[in-house]
Amino acid sequence: MKLANLNPTAAPPDTKVASQTPAAAGSGKLRFFARGLVPYAYLSPTVILISVLMIVPIAMVVSYSFKDNVIVEENPVLVGLANYTKVLTDPDFLVALKNTFVFITVSTVAHLVLGLTFALMLNTSLLGGVTKAVFRIIYILPWLFTVAVIAVIWRLLLDPSGVVNYLLTTVGRMQQGVDWLSDPGTALWALTFVNIWAGFPFFMISILAGLQGISSDLYEAASVDGAGAVRQFLNVTIPQLRPVLVSMAVLDLIWTSQQFALIWMTTGGGPLNATEMLSTYTYKQAFSSYEFATASASAVIVLLLSLVLAFFYVRLQKER
């Protein structure tokens, strides 16, 4: 205090602030407040869009799943987990769950195997540049078609009087045509085949990019060590591609589990629920039965299953 009296200019900053006018103090607070808010203001467009387009709808669906007769009734009541119990004990849901598991597992494995096979073919030095370019265009075609076109094409091809049956009966592989999409025994496999056909080019291109990133030094070193083609594939190619393969597989599991349009436009979940998936089950609950509460419960279960896959994907990305 003594020092302050002798030399006011040497007073500590806090003393100086304390001696300022109320207007100056207000300006300081405002400055502090404004500085703190600016980053949030910059973020706000994204936050608002994510809230409006994702968080709010998801929160609404989750809240619907705990109520009875949502949307169709003015004042729905809370029913706790009743909708979840109803969905999880519904035989149709369990069939849809099983079908979805088969559909996404077989699709993903086939996408990986086919994608890798065709990528290896397009990466080989045995084919010329022009030949590879032509095959690249041919193989990528299925991926360029929209789902509606794919559904129409394959409905025509797999029709009992369609091209596939004609070819198989003509070459003598079958005596009678097969109702590929109408027979409960073949419908799921036919649909899975169509999905594999439509999706493998994306794997092929991604894996091809991965293959082209593998250093030729590794193959030369392996060759010097006496490794043959198979050994090089198993000990060089696969380990080098592992991050790409695992990421693609996890993403494909998520994407395929959300497949709706292809199923709806080819079989609609039939015949006899043979191709019923979680997506078609949920849609029918909402837009055919007007059971929006059970549809919401089913959607939340699908969301949770997708989150498990998303968790593994994010963890893999972090590891990389």
Binding site: R155, D159, S182, D183, P184, A187, G268, P271, L272
Partner: peptide
């Protein structure tokens, strides 16, 4: 044949 998944347009 194919009536179990046949659509009106088919």
């Amino acid at each position: 044949p194919g009536s179990l998944t046949m659509k009106e347009q088919d």
